[in-house]
Design a protein around this nucleic acid. Structure first.
Lengths: 175, 175
DNA sequence: CAGTTTCGCCGAAGATTATTCGCCAGAAAA
DNA sequence: TTTTCTGGCGAATAATCTTCGGCGAAACTG
């Protein structure tokens, strides 16, 4: 129910993943709602073999969880924004963490740069954002905020399994 | 496989959702890997009733998809960053969109504020980020970028089904 | 206000899938 | 070579999904 607890990976470094694992992860990141048979078809393994690997990948922490991605507009929160918070002392305060209790807050990162913490939020309206900003400003140590309101979202996908190994030279690859 | 096509919601405004729908959406956003029986138990409906509603919520676009959330570190991309791109003319160019071909790029938003486009990226290393920045700067019209590197991620969850209706006064609610 | 339609739930049943198990081949260790 | 271990496969069972008919409550009609 509450996935606010601890999102640190179960392992420190990268996991040893063979091509089968990569394919499975890639397929599941795109669609977690397919059968092991369909999955096995795509990667070239039998359903039990895929099942075994998925279980292992979950235990190892490569798969954090399976979730339904909801449409913000449909659930009544059409306004996406990134809020940069400049805090006085150290970024993470227990008080700031409490803001996770608002379901509008989806992400909180402490960052290097001229902001201390970045929030990703999804609001019902500009007024709701104003209220949330009020909450943020009421946290001791918060000096100021900068809000970036999303006008259009062109891409929004989960962590991809692939990693670019050889980066092309300056021009973009043709396809 | 490629979910880059069109992520616009199927409907314009909010969907009429009764308490059952809210509960189902909330439960699925937290864990999409549970049976309709377990889901029905939580919301107080029979498995077929839940099944029917989930099907409807998918058709209506409230549920975009079900995905596995991978651990960035485990798959070899431990570095999360937000890159603000300042572009000359209008934010969205076909050329900029091509950057979605890199699996490191997870989000692209055009925003109001002193940036044109915000990227959320997940990289293998600072060097990889440097390469990606090179790619971004090679796009015509791009004036400059600002990068915010995530030091810690305190919260990272999908769109929540709940909406805060009555915002508390200035102080944070006690719990 | 009764008749009628619609909507959405439930229980049961069949189809599909998940999950376990034993066996076996290939690689690694001895 | 022999042994051990790892990981895949096919088959079998358990669990789940999915469909279907029936039924009650609410919402329209006349």
């Amino acid at each position: 129910m509450e996935n606010t607890e601890d999102i640190r990976p179960k392992r420190r470094g990268p996991l040893p993943l063979d091509p089968f694992d990569r394919k499975i992860l890639g397929a599941l990141a795109a669609d977690a709602d397919q059968s092991y048979a369909a999955l096995g078809e795509k990667v070239g393994l039998s359903p039990p073999a895929v099942h075994e690997r998925v279980k292992r990948l979950k235990r190892a922490g490569a798969i954090r969880d399976m979730v339904a991605r909801l449409d913000g507009t449909a659930v009544g929160k059409p306004l996406t924004a990134f809020v940069h918070v400049e805090a006085a002392g150290w970024g993470k305060s227990e008080r700031l963490m409490q803001l996770a209790r608002f379901p509008e807050v989806e992400e909180m990162h402490s960052v290097a740069g001229d902001a201390s913490v970045i929030f990703k939020v999804r609001m019902e309206s500009p007024q709701a954002l104003e209220f949330l900003l009020g909450q943020i400003h009421s946290v001791p140590g918060v000096r100021g905020t900068k809000s970036y309101i999303a006008l259009s979202t062109y891409l929004d996908r989960p962590v991809q399994a692939e990693v670019t190994t050889d980066w092309p030279g300056v021009p973009l690859p043709p396809e």
